[in-house]
Write a protein that binds this DNA or RNA. Structure first.
Length: 547
DNA sequence: ACGCTAATAT
DNA sequence: GATATTAGCG
């Protein structure tokens, strides 16, 4: 075809000579773009309607490397038609209109990028990237003759670079770029062609997520699978996750959540390279979920490369990721929340149980250490009756599940995870500014019983004066129990019956074994005073710090 | 195997 | 110092 080995040798100054199909109905802008591109040594072929362009493609397949297509208001369908019929050609859409839906549709139809007009020189200059990406990431079917030379050429360039770098470094693993080249040769999946350039072939993701209809996340950077973590050196097949067309729903742009995992790469001098990619901050508008207005950062992720080394990945617990974590925990109930189940519920590709366990550990620590203080601080009058109200412990206490619609106390002061307000700019993971990072409004259910909304909570209402004998809802008379039952209309047989000894044992035991959990009703943690009193009774007058 | 905690690393 | 990973134990 047009790309021959001669071209290859001529491509020392790549991307010079790359052939651009320019489809634009507006002749003046066409001329401008053309001249700009030509100034950059691209070879430009212009067309003013899609049929012409398409026939040019079909007549001379492989003649073009990349297409630049205008999406005009008047002929949107023409653009789409082109897209659909030129799947083998990396196609960049350009437009004055930047309607998110249109953009989405273009991308969904296979466009590699959507550029807003006016097309700056920078934008134009870089269009070759899509050609290279295609050359390396497209399936064999799409490996047209025009791409092959590109690939070879680029590969050889990269190899050159590798040698140079190796010369100046002591030890270094095979450069990712090389493995990239090799991998794309070996692991190409047939279905992996014609995806947006920045994204690499993806795993399809099955099933829906949490029942609130939340979105699917993809970790867009390669992580090793959990199965690989126990086995020694099995070269784990790297997978890079990106948006899949199956999950793409045109009318539902908010269903993309940004989830980023940083990959750390201790290369030569120990400089950390973060492969943190989220290049398209495009749609911030109207990203409200119907079920609660959760804001979603969205973005198509440019997974830049596919790598095959076994470096440890660092999971970046973005707000989105954490939110899923939190939702999983909520769904399970704090006490039932164990790493494996959370992992299951989160349905995040690539996340390992270890990651979740680690996060869970922190989460619990946070709850354990910060919350009681918060509680105290907010209701000092009940200092020695710290009541932890969120306790959906089904088996024993039969608390009602989390109710998403309950009213929140106005301007609640939620506990912060990290230092109080001393987070620099890195708060990105802890939610929108002004909000405390971890506990989102949905997840923290601190209801002082004085003003508690029993309707929403169902029943963990306890008279402020209730004695701290066990099970005040029974001990203090059936009155409170029945009142509660009446008021919330929930039948709670367990409250009507005198708890069996074993139940009490179980509760107490559990309270002891799982200190991070809220205490069941009627149990209270020892007050500071009583602890001190007991200590002094035992002859201990001062406390050594916990460590 | 799994969950949890503590130690370790970044 | 905060946060994620790893190791070790039950």
């Amino acid at each position: 075809m047009v790309c021959t080995t001669n071209d290859l040798s001529a491509w020392k100054d790549f991307p010079k000579g790359l052939r651009v199909l320019l489809l634009d109905e507006d002749s003046s802008s066409t001329a401008e773009i053309k001249s700009n591109l030509e100034a950059m040594d691209y070879i430009v072929y212009t067309f003013c309607n899609e049929n012409e362009a398409l026939s040019a493609i079909s007549n001379e397949p492989g003649n073009f490397h990349v297409a630049l297509v205008e999406v005009s208001g008047s002929n949107v369908n023409g653009s789409f038609k082109f897209l659909e019929n030129a799947k083998d050609l990396p196609t960049i859409m350009t437009s004055n209109i930047h309607c998110l839906n249109t953009m989405m549709k273009c991308i969904a139809l296979g466009a590699v990028e959507f550029l807003r007009k006016p097309l700056s020189e920078d934008k134009l200059r870089n269009i070759w990237q899509h050609v290279v990406h295609k050359a390396f990431n497209a399936g064999a079917s799409a490996q047209s003759e025009s791409l092959k030379p590109v690939k070879d050429s680029v590969a050889s360039m990269l190899e050159l670079k590798v040698e140079l770098r190796q010369a100046e470094t002591e030890y270094m693993e095979k450069t990712e770029n090389v493995s990239l080249a090799q991998e794309s040769n070996e692991h190409q999946s047939p279905a992996s062609d014609k995806y947006p350039a920045p994204s690499t072939p993806q795993l399809k993701q099955g099933g829906r997520l949490l029942d609130d209809g939340d979105c699917q996340d993809h970790i867009n950077c390669s992580i090793e699978k959990e199965s690989a973590e126990q086995e020694g050196e099995s070269k784990s097949v790297e997978t890079t996750y990106a948006m899949s067309q199956e999950t793409l729903q045109l009318g539902d742009p908010q269903s993309f959540v940004e989830t980023v995992i940083k990959e750390e790469d201790n290369s030569t001098d120990g400089v950390k390279i973060e492969n943190n990619i989220c290049p398209n901050p495009q749609n911030k508008d109207g990203l409200k979920n119907s079920n609660g207005g959760a804001k979603k950062a969205s973005g198509l992720h440019n997974s830049y490369r596919t790598r095959a080394n076994r470096k440890k990945m660092k999971v970046d617990w973005t707000p989105e990721l954490h939110k899923k974590f939190e939702q999983a925990v909520e769904k399970l109930g704090v006490d039932q929340a164990i790493p494996s189940r959370i992992l299951e519920l989160m349905k995040v590709e690539g996340l390992t149980r270890h990651n979740v366990a680690s996060h869970l550990q922190k989460y619990r620590m946070h709850r354990r250490h910060i919350l009681p203080k918060e509680d105290d601080r907010r209701w000092p009058q009940h200092r020695d009756q710290v009541q932890r109200s969120y306790y959906p412990h089904k088996p024993i206490m039969a608390y009602p599940p989390y109710h998403p619609n309950h009213a929140l106390p106005p301007r609640p002061v939620y506990p912060m995870w990290g230092a109080t307000g001393s987070h620099p700019a890195g708060v990105h993971m802890w939610g929108p500014p002004g909000y405390p990072p971890w506990p989102t409004t949905e997840s923290w259910h601190w209801k002082p019983y004085p003003g508690m909304h029993a309707d929403a909570w169902g029943c963990p209402v306890m008279p402020p004066h209730s004695p701290y004998s066990s099970f005040p809802q029974n001990a203090s008379g059936s009155q409170s129990a029945s009142m509660v039952n009446n008021s919330c209309g929930v039948t709670q047989k367990s409250f009507d019956l005198q708890p069996a000894e074993e139940i009490i044992d179980k509760v107490v035991k559990e309270a002891i074994n799982k200190p991070w959990l809220p205490l069941p009703l009627g149990l209270k943690p020892p007050s500071t005073d009583s602890v001190l009193a007991e200590l002094s009774r035992q002859g201990i007058s001062s406390l050594a710090p916990p460590h």
